[in-house]
Amino acid sequence: MTILDKIIERKKEEVASAQSKIPLDHLKDNAFFRRETISLKESIKNKSGIIAEFKRQSPSKGIINNNVEPIDIVSAYEKFGASGISILTDHDFFGGNLNDVLSVRNDINIPILRKDFMIDEYQFYEAKSIGADVVLLIASCLSPAQVQEFTDLAHELKMEVLLEIHTENELKHFNSKIDLVGINNRNLKDFKVNLQHSVQLKNQLPKEVLSVAESGIYNLEDFKFLKEKGFDSFLMGEYFMKNTNPAKAFEEFASQI
């Protein structure tokens, strides 16, 4: 069983537990459920293209940074030009929670991606209720039919969809309704990083699709390489979060691009 298999098995338990505590219909009572969402696609076109991530830990790196509060980091991300914010809400493997989104939603005016392992329609209503503008669909966790179904649901809830792929076979999960396609430079099964592999996948996407380079961007040279190869956006978390002061790290990086 891979780490991804373990995450999905645990996620099924989490969703069942959440549904038993807060029925889906009750999620619609949250004030954020009625807010107008912000387009990540438009924000990428008008700003730096960086989707800056708040992430405490990961299965591959362990604890990255447990000593900072979300608002201190994401407000700086916004101030220094991030196109969007990615916030991990998985608890057991990434140290996140729903409150990490709730606690900052009223204080920033750029789109928030709820980054989690979305396997059940309940999670989409949950994402909407906490103020997310975008949801992540991971192709390796879903069938093409599920991606289609979940994309339709997200759009019904006025949220955009970022589809994450890593293999050529996962290109079949793409459909014309997808808003953005993220290509994970890191293999979720063995955590190896291959930027050239991501470029090859990107070149097989329709040219009009906004592409996002995800994970494994360790320095300015990696960023410039991927930008030169035509990526529109860059999801970066560890690069900033591993610093004692992630906000300062982002400010310095943004000044160099």
Rank of each mutant, 00 (worst) to 15 (best):
I3D: 08
I8W: 12
K12R: 14
E13H: 10
E14I: 00
V15G: 11
H26Y: 15
K28A: 11
F33E: 04
I38E: 05
E42K: 14
I44Y: 05
Q57L: 04
S58N: 08
P59W: 04
N66C: 07
V68A: 04
D72P: 05
D72L: 02
D72S: 12
E78H: 08
T89M: 09
T89K: 02
D90N: 14
G95H: 04
L98N: 15
D100V: 02
N106M: 06
N106T: 09
I110E: 08
G131T: 10
V134R: 03
L136F: 04
S143H: 06
E149Q: 13
D152L: 09
L153F: 11
L162N: 01
L162S: 03
I165M: 01
H166V: 02
N169D: 13
H173Q: 05
K192Y: 13
K192V: 09
S198E: 07
V199Y: 03
L201D: 06
L205K: 01
L205T: 01
K207H: 10
A213I: 00
G216E: 07
I217R: 01
N219C: 12
L220N: 12
F225H: 14
L226R: 01
K227I: 05
L235R: 06
N243M: 09
P246H: 05
P246W: 06
A249D: 05
